[in-house]
Design a protein around this nucleic acid. Structure first.
Lengths: 235, 235
DNA sequence: CTCCAAGTGGAGTACCTGTTCCGCTTACAG
DNA sequence: CTGTAAGCGGAACAGGTACTCCACTTGGAG
């Protein structure tokens, strides 16, 4: 007698109206998160989706479930970027374009910036993708170094460094100067060039130690812990 | 008959016990702001000062009053740094040291980072000091450029850019990698060197437009507006 | 010592956000 | 068409923070 779940065709297992609401919620969350970051009030998401708050919580019991659903496709794009970079025949150009693309992704979407800089370990579902991307980025680095274009003391951990710096500029400048980040990235790309490292300035001032992978991991975990402690404030 | 205000000696105009409490509050706020940023709950400040919440609000009617009191001396230090830089005989060294000092000030004090990156226009009392510092920094820039050590396309608006980038790294890495910011600053200093700008990489990839002073001002104002709208969240 | 204005602390109010509960509605299988 | 489980919405509860009010205490002038 009536197991109810009709499953009209796909394996969603949701009633048609429920599936429709789910999509409305994700769509609304995409907008809200982009504007206010992933800590935006969920009330607002439900309101914009024209859905009761309970419906939102029923479908996405935790904020992270919602974030995961919202940014899944962007994460794929992030993962795809490194593959595109590998396809580029010129190692240095591939390296530079990758940095620029990744930084560009942080622009105009505060939510994705949050996900990129604080939230990798927070969302388990993204961890595998992130790890793979970083590995592939390592290949990119090696290739550019062997071509003699990227300085030898560049390490993969400089990528999170760049992402955090870029996030600072993006969130600091906001829409008042939406292209300011390009200037930072250009400065840094020039600093990353092998010839810069061989110049007298660089020789006189050696690069300080990069953060270790463990340190980066701890840093990201710390942000996660802070977010867990208090879902408020933060800014 | 009794106008009450004894004024023990200095012009504080406060009763002795009240003055004592004021100091306790500022001291507590200094600690709390350093740890949690300038949006930290004021409850916590009052608790740590062992003072009733009403006392805090009576003495500092707005959060900004408290922030101003807490960071007045640090702002003086910030202003003094540019003078020290001018005293340095080598223009390039003075320029570099200034950048490093200013960035170092953002480390280990989340509150000061907030004040430096979001809050200049928010706190009128600091506006004059900031403007003067930026002017003096402009002299530093000119001097270093005339010495042929600083690239000609460097502009004073690159300083807020650097501060925002640095703030991103400082808050992102936290105490997990407390020295990571040095690596960013070193990269950037090398990028700022004149010889870097003359290299083939820089020539191939010209620097994008810097944000105009107006854009920077608007960016900072925007952050102020957001902070005014909702004293929560942020993080 | 007396007195009172300055000062105090904590309870109270208001607002915001997260999260759950529960009675009502509806899609859809039979 | 009908029954029912899935789904729904909003009220209610909970916790945290900003800010105010007011009855009580106290420094210090005279």
């Amino acid at each position: 007698m009536g197991q109810g779940c009709g499953a009209t065709g796909v394996g969603s297992g949701l009633r048609a109206d429920a599936e429709r609401n789910r999509l409305r919620i994700v769509e609304a969350a995409r907008e809200v998160f982009a504007e206010e970051g992933i800590d935006a009030p969920l009330n607002e998401v439900a309101r914009r989706a024209e859905v009761g708050i309970a419906t939102l919580f029923r479908r996405f019991p935790t904020r992270d479930d919602l974030v995961t659903a919202v940014f899944a496709d962007r994460m794929s794009a992030y993962a795809a970027a490194v593959d595109r970079a590998h396809a580029e025949p010129d190692p240095w150009l591939g390296f530079c374009r990758y940095l620029e693309q990744v930084c560009a992704m942080q622009v105009g979407d505060r939510g994705f910036t949050d996900v990129m800089t604080q939230s990798f370990p927070r969302f388990r579902s993204f961890e595998a993708e992130r790890r793979r991307s970083l590995d592939r980025f390592g290949d990119l680095v090696t290739r550019a170094q062997q071509a003699g274009r990227l300085r030898a003391d560049f390490v993969v951990e400089d990528l999170p460094l760049l992402l955090m710096a870029n996030a600072g500029v993006v969130s600091g400048m906001g829409d008042a100067a939406p292209d300011a980040w390009r200037r930072l990235v250009t400065y840094l790309v020039q600093a990353f060039a092998a010839e810069t490292a061989e110049g007298p300035v660089a020789t006189a001032q050696p690069l300080p130690e990069a953060p270790t992978p463990r340190q980066v991991a701890r840093a990201l975990a710390r942000v996660q812990a802070r977010a867990a402690r208090g879902p408020g404030r933060a800014q």
